[in-house]
Design a protein around this nucleic acid. Structure first.
Lengths: 236, 236
DNA sequence: CGAGAAAACTGGTCTGACCACTTGACCTCC
DNA sequence: GGAGGTCAAGTGGTCAGACCAGTTTTCTCG
């Protein structure tokens, strides 16, 4: 099964963005240190000032630099300034290795948000038919994206009517999307455990928030443990 | 006490960004609909194409539009694509009114993340001296930003060693920062309740994760309730 | 009617100039 | 010596119009 991925010829703008981003994340450009002027970057990178500017605007949007008219552009401490949108960039270190602490963080947040969303869902969702249907379709689809429990949790999150959870889920998903196939394999155990899914749905159905919370937490803990084991195995 | 806020004369680029952003959020530009071409925007807005492009790059970075070389740039569904960084933009509707559902969402997430972070903190933090000091200094400082329990929760989040929580906290804070003074007043009850803070710290000190979780949840629930009451009062 | 070429879009980059703001050196005047 | 002002250099912000590189539509021709 050979799959061809489209060559991603990023724009110059994106290339510059990635390059500066990498230097900020690996510490080459520490917090507070000024970035070279746009004109300097222009000549050093061999691109136009417009290209440099577009890259800088995006870095600013991410909260990684602070641009000030007249003054120099400075690097900000991303651990203080950046939002969750930065997450996808933190998975791999400069040398390409997986950052286990980040992966663990994602799994922990997944569990906490998922559990609370299920609890809220129990108080705010009336019809669980869609949920049961989603569980029924689990593992049936072909592609890993659909095969994952994306649909189920989409419904739970939407049912919780919490926009923060919705946006957080988007960010988390954006983060592990590139490795969807691998994630699917690791989480196989969780995905196969229909009984736990049903337990969550039953609790939501009876509007029992605390039952929904604990059932969801138990369900998600399976995946958390599986990922933990995977990481431990990788260490060896 | 009259305070002078610096006049924020945004750049054209930011103005264009805000304008398009507003239209996307209020639905004037629905998901999937194509944006006018850069050249069209250029002439309609009376600015240069570079200005338009910088604005579009930022919108793309936020996950609000999808730019494709050769094709038209399209509006994406922010409820599916945008990450938590979008949050600060969702507080106020087009008419300037506060979106209660968003506020409620923030408080719920604050509570869930805070509780889980406290639990993790209990298993990962060894020295709680800094925490006790932070609580001791609560309410002593002058400005609302410091006066808020920012420092305390900063320490808890850092102690949890969960980068996702760290970034989420940044995003949440970014969201309610503009209204820090008001938030401080509403949360006064929570901030004054030293005993609850101490209970959290004690649990962390004894490495009792579940105790820390419930103590933190109870502490944060005070603020959640206060905000709920405030919103209910505003409805009247 | 269908396939393929051509034209007309779209976004991406280049050029070089000028405007607006901040900074810091220097200079004056108490 | 210190407080204030002036000025030049450096920074980001914007402008203009041109050309390159893809995509989409249109039109032509078999």
């Amino acid at each position: 099964m050979s799959t061809f991925a489209p060559v991603d010829r990023r724009s110059f703008s994106s290339a510059v963005f990635e390059q500066i981003l990498a230097q900020i994340l690996d510490g080459s450009l520490g917090p507070g240190s000024p970035l070279p002027s746009e004109r300097t970057l222009t000549s050093e990178l061999g691109v136009t000032r417009q290209v440099v500017r577009e890259a800088l605007q995006r870095l600013d949007q991410l909260g990684l630099v602070e641009i000030r008219h007249g003054g120099s552009t400075r690097v900000q401490d991303y651990r203080v300034r950046a939002g969750l949108d930065l997450l996808p960039r933190l998975f791999r270190r400069a040398d390409g290795s997986l950052d286990h602490e980040v992966v663990r963080s994602v799994m922990e947040m997944r569990q906490a948000i998922g559990a609370d969303a299920a609890a809220l869902c129990a108080t705010r969702m009336d019809d669980t038919a869609a949920l049961r249907e989603a569980v029924a379709g689990l593992g049936a689809g072909g592609d890993p994206a659909t095969d994952l429990d994306s649909l189920f949790w989409d419904l739970v999150i939407d049912g919780s009517r919490n926009i923060c959870y919705r946006l957080s889920l988007n960010a988390l998903r954006q983060a592990y999307q590139p490795a969807a196939a691998l994630v699917g394999r690791i989480l196989a155990g969780e995905l196969a455990d229909r009984a736990r899914y049903e337990a969550v749905i039953d609790a939501i159905d009876t509007h029992d928030a605390e039952a929904a919370r604990s059932a969801a937490a138990e369900l998600l803990a399976v995946g958390t443990a599986a990922v933990g084991a995977f990481l431990a195995g990788e260490d060896r």
